[in-house]
Amino acid sequence: MIVKDESEHLNTCLESVKNYVNEIIIVDTGSTDNTIKIAKTHGAAVYEYTWTNDFAAARNFALSKSTSEWNLILDADEQITNWDKDKVNKLLQNDHFIGKINIKSNFKQNNEERYSQIYISRLLPKGAYYSGKIHEQVMSKLTRVELPIDVFHTGYFQTDKSERNLKILKEDLSNNPRNAYILYQLARQYKTMNLYQKAAHFFRESYQAADRSEGYFTDLVVNYIYTLIELKQYYPAFEMIDQMNVPLGNSPDYQFVCGIFYMNFVLSDTAKNIDFLPLIERSYLICLALGKQNEREIVLGTASFLAAYNLGVYYEMFNQKEKAKEFYEISAAYHYLPAKSRLLTL
């Protein structure tokens, strides 16, 4: 771990992981609170490190202090929620892979608390290392394997690291001007700040440079479309959807944003665009079908309660109350409060 002033989170993190690891390596980059004291109460080896605006360098310094054959990387605002010890230990008998763990995060969207999930390379064999000043990535040609390890991350919830992130991302981009991943992260940062023109520019640059096999590609496309919707740039969004219907057709998040797009497009000029109305319904029905096929969501609910709720709204709008009630009930079964509220009014 690399930490600084994490006394609020560190104890919870270390309590969650202590039964699964043999040693704890903490690299502190200048804490002035009780971070180091808390780390030492958990038996951690603590090393001081001068921060240089380079997360990969700090990660690699921490890895250099480990005596273990395998290394789990965590941040202080993360905690282990599930770890299948038997399955993980069996897999670790083979050292020819990089382990990906499922990281679930909460964030604010439409004045609601929502959750996302993504598998990230975090369990590394000795010798693997990081590259990238921020949103650092593991540099290895080894196969990536998903492990039965779940982590809950609170770092995106009501916190603002924009100034720090932008500074480092811009530095990184100046050294790698055509790096699709840096461009994508810069675009996401601007979108988080509601600077949609800048976000669209960098999403477009990233999209043009990206390898479609990269794990972040679906999220890139989905967030690019959301950004174009915010800017009311419907025809570039149409072009994107036309290109992505086949390669991303099995992504609930992609189908969900298509539903959002068609709704906004129809409402922008109802008389002119009314023929696209059925595509709203179609998109959300595909979301639910993909959910039944267990296709993985990035944002939780796009293949279940969020899609069902939006269908309920769609049917209610056309006074199809029985259909609206049916889909609100599907959504409410997931304890989605807006769906429960709509049911009370029908």
Rank of each mutant, 00 (worst) to 15 (best):
Y184K: 00
Y254F: 15
T218G: 06
F152I: 12
Q109D: 12
N179D: 14
M244S: 04
T302G: 09
S174V: 12
F107W: 03
N264Y: 11
T50P: 13
K65N: 11
A332G: 06
Q233N: 14
N53G: 11
L72C: 03
H153D: 15
H153E: 12
F203Q: 01
K325P: 07
N19H: 11
E136Q: 13
V246A: 11
Q93K: 15
N106T: 09
E329C: 09
K292N: 15
N60Y: 00
E171H: 04
T41V: 03
A62V: 02
A76F: 05
W51A: 05
I260L: 14
T345L: 13
I120A: 14
S64L: 02
Y130I: 06
S268Q: 09
L91K: 06
L183F: 05
P338S: 05
Y284T: 04
L186C: 06
S251G: 13
L267F: 11
S268I: 01
N34K: 15
T81D: 08
L183A: 04
A333T: 11
I103F: 05
H335I: 12
S251E: 06
T12W: 07
Y190M: 01
N60V: 00
A45F: 07
N82P: 11
Q93S: 10
E78S: 10
H153W: 07
G312P: 03
V138R: 01
Q208D: 13
C287G: 02
I120N: 07
M240D: 12
L248K: 00
A39G: 03
A303E: 03
L195E: 14
N273S: 05
R144H: 11
H9F: 15
A187H: 05
N111R: 09
E171S: 13
F202Y: 15
M139H: 12
N273Q: 11
